[in-house]
Every structure is written in structure tokens, then in C-alpha cells.
């Protein structure tokens, strides 16, 4: 049996973080880098990930042409691709009442972008015969957002509790299973993570309400996010595919 710690190592592997400007990217990047991976990003916005970035690819999540170009860019600039962090599901749209155009705009940037990214980069991984795709979602993928958590922070409800949010997060759950089928036949894996908010990312009022409902009685630490992603990216999870892993201190367990 190999040393189990060696199986967590990402030394020599190349990771591409899609939409690095979105929440959780910084924690993920630092975790992957600490485990030895070379970090690349694909997006349009600048992001301070706190790690050395080997290269930045231009990418518009949800744009068909850009998705096709992304595969070419990866082949030309990265050469090989081991880890895909699909982090384009974050949507900042406010409130419950939305117009059709607002709904479509958000879904095309997120849901469509998810499919186009995984389709495009999945081809590269399948050709190589190895690779791990990780879809980044939040806890709303597995349970409804609780309106009671926002009773003392109505402003946050306007930003967090948006109409399309559950739909977008939840789309990752079965897509991980569906995409995993094709990818596994080609030696690759696809999993999703459903994160709780990270300490410092929300108000004290929300933190109090949220942690009342989870078993660990705290929000996520940066290390919690990093460790989960390193596990799913590495050979330590070689036999795990198609799952959505809650990283929420037991929020959905109660």
C-alpha cells in the first residue's frame, strides 16, 4: 500500500480555476497550491488568490465561442490539464421578483456556463485519460435556504435569497453524476462540493442564525474548503465520482 499522504499530493499537477473572482476561489487556490499543484485561472476579472498563478486564460462563462476557445487555449498554453475547478455558479442577483431577462441572464452565465465548461474541458481530460473535475456549489444545492436565517439581516436576504439561486446550485448535484458517467469511462472523475459560507463572508446576525442550525456551530474555515477540494482533486479520492460532498459542519445532517 502506498503512503496515504502521498495520495493527497498534487505535485506536478496543473489545476485550472474557472471564474477565480467568485467566492471560495481563494481558499481553493491556496489549498491546491499548498498540495503542490500549479495554478492557472480562466476568467475575465482580476482575482487576488494569494498564490503564484502560472497563467491566466481569458474566458467568459456562458459564452459558447469562449468555451470552444478555452479548450484551444488550455492545449496551447497549459499542455496538460489535471484538475478543473468549475466555480462559475455564483450569482449576485438580488431578490425574489425578477424579470424574464434577469432570470435568463443569470442562468446563461451560470447553468449554461457550467455545461459549456465541463463539455469543453472534459474532452481534454477524456483524451488524456485522467483528470478530476470539481463543481463548486453552496449548501443550497442540497437543502433550501432557510428564510429564518435572514430574519435579523434582511439586507443579506436580498442578496443571498435570490429567485434563481437554489436552481443554479442544485443543478450541480445531478450534473456531477451525469457528467461522471462519460468521464469515468475515460478514466476521469467529476464531483461537486456544497460549501457553507466562510467565516468573514457574512454578517454576525447571519452567522449566529446559520450556526444555530449546524452541528459544528461555526462557519467554514479556509482550511475546510481547501482540504475538501484537495481531497477530491487528488488520488486520495480516486474511487469517488459523481458525488456532491457537503462541507457545512453538519448543516444538512440535522
Amino acid at each position: 500500500m502506498t503512503n496515504i499522504l502521498d495520495r493527497f499530493s498534487l505535485a506536478g499537477k496543473k489545476a485550472l480555476i474557472v471564474c477565480p473572482e467568485n467566492p471560495y476561489s481563494r481558499e481553493i487556490a491556496q489549498g491546491l497550491a499548498a498540495a503542490g499543484a500549479e495554478i492557472w485561472t480562466a476568467g475575465n476579472a482580476d482575482a487576488d488568490l494569494g498564490v503564484t498563478v502560472a497563467g491566466k486564460l481569458t474566458y467568459t462563462h456562458g459564452d459558447t465561442e469562449s468555451a470552444a476557445n478555452l479548450a484551444n487555449e488550455v492545449r496551447a498554453k497549459m499542455g496538460t490539464l489535471d484538475i478543473v475547478i468549475e466555480n462559475g455558479l455564483y450569482t449576485p442577483v438580488k431578490g425574489w421578483k425578477q424579470t424574464y431577462n434577469e432570470i435568463y441572464d443569470q442562468l446563461s452565465k451560470t447553468e449554461l456556463g457550467l455545461m459549456l465548461t465541463v463539455q469543453s474541458l472534459g474532452r481534454i481530460l477524456a483524451e488524456q485519460g485522467h483528470g478530476s473535475v470539481i463543481l463548486v456549489a453552496d449548501y443550497g444545492a442540497l437543502v433550501g435556504y432557510d428564510p429564518v436565517n435572514y430574519q435579523n439581516c434582511p439586507g443579506e436576504k436580498d442578496t443571498d435569497f435570490s429567485f434563481v439561486k437554489g436552481f443554479i446550485s442544485g443543478g450541480a448535484v445531478n450534473y456531477a453524476r451525469q457528467a461522471s458517467n462519460y468521464l469515468a469511462e475515460n478514466g476521469c472523475r467529476c464531483n461537486a462540493v456544497a460549501f457553507a459560507p466562510v467565516e468573514g463572508s457574512c454578517s454576525e446576525e447571519f452567522r449566529t442564525a446559520f450556526t444555530r442550525h449546524n452541528q459544528a456551530k461555526r462557519l467554514a474555515k479556509a482550511d475546510d474548503i481547501a482540504a475538501a477540494v484537495v481531497f477530491l482533486a487528488s488520488d486520495a479520492s480516486e474511487f469517488i465520482t459523481g458525488i456532491t460532498m457537503p462541507v457545512d459542519g453538519g448543516y444538512i445532517a440535522k
Binding site: 447553468e111 455545461m115 443550497g140 435569497f161 443554479i168 442544485g170 443543478g171 453524476r177
Partner: peptide
């Protein structure tokens, strides 16, 4: 791709919408 994403999203959204 599309059918599984759409239907998966819908099941999650039903929980989200029920809470609203």
C-alpha cells in the same frame, strides 16, 4: 448535459421555493 442540469436544478429549486 442539459436535461440532467435542468431537472436537478428544479428539484433543488422546489426546496428553495418552498422555503419562500
Amino acid at each position: 448535459h442539459a436535461y440532467s442540469v435542468d431537472k436537478s436544478g428544479l428539484s433543488a429549486w422546489v426546496r428553495h421555493a418552498a422555503s419562500y
